[in-house]
Amino acid sequence: MAQTAPEARRRARVRSMRRKEIRTQILGRVVLIAMSVIFLVPIAWMISTSFKEAHQVMAYPPIWIPWPFAWENYETAVKAIPFLLYLRNTLIICASTIIGTLISSTLVGYSLAKIPWRGRNALLILILSTMMLPFPVTMIPLFVTFGKLGWINTFKPLIIPAFLGSPFYIFLLRQFFMTIPGELSDAARIDGASELGIFGRIILPLSRPVLAVIALFQFLGAWNDFLGPLIYLHSDKKYTLAIGLQMYRTTNYVQWELLMAASTLVVLPILILFFFAQRTFIEGIAITGIKG
């Protein structure tokens, strides 16, 4: 009997925790649904416009559900620019920069977080400080450098720098690596593991969620980059989709229905990709409980 009282208290506490959890879940759902609606408005407008006929685009008050659907906008939009060619170019750049970023930024981030060498904090400040100078003033000398290398009108200026580390990702990775307990790598070091071995076998597997975030960010960054491809590519056969989307803009007005049809085609695959990619966060390391 003496033991059942605390047992009952514990049960009551667990029950009340359950109740609280359910309450949090309901409340959370309500807030999340409300947020989702707000966040969905632009894409709804984009898709709706993509099905409009030109004269409905400017109708006031705005038409949200056009009828009949102008499916032909999609055909016209795809035919107006070499869509598949631009898609191919974009994907080449996206894939290469993701690989480059993942390799280079993880290495540098590891050096800053896990190798106790003198000067690493100074290097971190130096890396960060390269982000502080606004791009417009370094654009011309950087372009001249690429010009001297003969890289203009190739994908090289868009891809190769990714293999040399990006400050944003380096810093992000450094912060994540810092949270991994030192005992893990110390133990491996004592066992005679090489730095590369610790990096590849211990640190990287523990960092899958953040690596997924970086891959996603880099993909989107390259996918939506306008200025880079615009200045470095001089032949319209090498253009990317972000530049192609500008082709629906005339000097004095925009062919909105075509622009939105093309944008929808560009956005939907990313949405689907994201929907599946974000599972990586859920199935993160925390569940397996290796960490901590």
Binding site: M139, I140, F143, V144, G147, I152, N153, L230, I231
Partner: peptide
């Protein structure tokens, strides 16, 4: 002919290309 999209005042492309001698 090459189409170089962008607004009329957006001369970043022209300026960089002229600076590097890769202009049209």
């Amino acid at each position: 002919m090459t189409v170089v999209p962008g607004s009329e005042t957006d001369v970043a492309k022209l300026m960089t290309a002229v600076a590097a001698g890769t202009g049209p």
